[in-house]
Design a protein around this nucleic acid. Structure first.
Lengths: 151, 151
DNA sequence: CTGCTTGCAAAACTTTTGCAGACGG
DNA sequence: CCGTCTGCAAAAGTTTTGCAAGCAG
């Protein structure tokens, strides 16, 4: 799947990325722009280390701590989705459009599965994806009512 | 919500828990039974430490390593759902029935939200839960086709 | 200029592992 | 009894933090 080239959710110009960050009330530093780009380049559902690896290809001086801080910021403003894990480390999905993640309990691999209607999804998931379903849930990220008040 | 008393998915007798573990080809040790019970007692979406804390109330000698190993096993056989995180540690949901987790990006709190129809869910989530949605996805756990073959 | 951000290095956590002994089936 | 499972302690990772210097607005 060529997510990197076709995804409507991806912000492609550096200016647009900078604008989005500023629009949320934060400074648009070159590091943040580079890390956003690295998110898409680092393959699907990359780990922090993988994102850092790609970010340093553009700017070798970017530190791992900055990547951590930036991903937290991006997650807070909904620019990226922090995902469940299997291997003790967080994974990030820059695709915040609705889609289904198929997470393998054994190897931790995450596959994307897209389908048009909700009915298709719920009924015959197994047959369509070749994935043996053990459990599933619909995860919604955002701000709980308490935290909305505390802003 | 009284999940602990009413959930249809909960295995309540010690024998039934032991049977389920054996049915999956593993040994039903007292530690495993205690850890399963602790999962439900430790509040909603407990962390490993919280589960360990409750497990040791029944058997003080249970080690943290055993809790880690057992949760991994339970997750492999679909007895529990390993969840995304916010604070650098995994959380576990023993409720494997379909339900929606509302995860707050700021405080990490996880709320359960139950609704009858899929349509209700997708359309007006915000109004019904008071939760400000930033992103969402439907996560399915299980075994990918590669890992099914490797068994 | 001001104070948000960065890089560095250390600290704090979380999770995994190796191994000898225990015990479930 | 055999081989899985446990507890312990150490090792390996991952994430967070404090601080001085840098730079966005």
């Amino acid at each position: 799947m060529k997510r990197h080239e076709t995804n409507v959710n991806m912000i492609s110009s550096r200016d647009a990325i900078a604008d989005t960050i500023r629009k949320n009330g934060f400074r648009a530093t070159p590091q943040r722009v580079v890390i956003y780009e690295a998110l898409w380049k680092a393959g699907s559902h990359p780990s922090v280390l993988e994102i850092h690896e790609y970010a340093t290809k553009t700017d070798p001086s970017i530190s791992l701590a900055t990547v951590y801080k930036t991903l937290q910021l991006f997650s807070d403003i909904g620019l990226v989705r922090e995902m469940g894990l299997r291997d003790g480390s967080a994974r990030y999905d820059p695709d915040t459009e609705f889609h289904i993640n198929l997470v393998c309990n054994k190897c931790g691999k995450v596959e994307d599965f897209n389908s048009v209607s909700m009915d298709q999804i719920v009924s015959n998931l197994d047959e369509k994806s070749g994935f043996q379903v053990l459990s599933y849930s619909f995860e919604v990220r955002g701000l709980c009512s308490d935290c909305q008040r505390r802003v």
